[in-house]
């Protein structure tokens, strides 16, 4: 166990003994990333609930084994479990791969951001992320927005690192295609 995981384990131990200061440190470090992950995955209405359930699970003794991964990976894993439950209940979208849309991308479209202000571009990207299938939205959120490395993301979504790479590549291509369509719409309007 390296120093970071040993300090993670010590932090979780202190929290489970009721150490408020230790909890405050951990919460300050992870509330934002977990909230944003939940926000991108299941919307603002559920994001706070996911944060609360994730940290309650930690407090109430869901097992954290520092030898098996980082505390960040562990927390994202719990959050993911709650997110998937919510997605299943609300059926926000049908399952299925959207790779066909990538093939339909027009390669000679202009850059999505050529005629947009920065604010418009950010909003366009946000809308495009929201329209991605959940598996791609998730990989974009974890790897690009929250900057988890491939190994950590693979731990969270429980798949090989190679799958993370290929899924991220497809997600970016799909996002690019969607941005083209979205920004064309903005320009026309």
């Amino acid at each position: 166990m390296d120093r970071a995981s040993s300090s993670d384990a010590a932090l979780v131990g202190a929290i489970r003994r009721g150490d408020e200061e230790a909890f405050a440190r951990l919460y300050a470090a992870y509330r934002g990333p977990i909230f944003r992950y939940a926000l991108h995955m299941c919307g603002v209405g559920s994001a706070e609930d996911v944060v609360q359930e994730t940290f309650l699970a930690l407090l109430r003794g869901d097992r954290f084994d520092a030898g098996r991964g980082t505390l960040a990976g562990y927390l994202f894993g719990i959050a993911r479990h709650h997110i998937l439950k919510r997605l299943a209940v609300t059926r926000l979208e049908a399952a299925g791969d959207d790779d066909r849309v990538i093939e339909a991308t027009a390669p000679d479209e202009p850059s999505p951001f050529d005629d947009l202000s920065r604010t418009e571009a950010v909003e366009a990207v946000r809308a495009a992320i929201q329209s991605l299938p959940s598996a791609y939205r998730e990989i974009i959120t974890l790897c690009e927005l929250e900057e988890l490395d491939y190994a950590a993301a693979a731990g969270v979504i429980e798949c090989p690192v190679g799958t993370v790479r290929s899924r991220l590549h497809r997600a970016k291509a799909l996002l690019s295609a969607k941005l083209v369509r979205l920004t064309v719409g903005v320009r026309r309007s």
Binding site: F113, A121, E144, L145, L175, L179
Partner: peptide
């Protein structure tokens, strides 16, 4: 472009 947009 996508990477820059995501960073933004």
């Amino acid at each position: 472009n996508v990477t820059e947009a995501l960073r933004a």
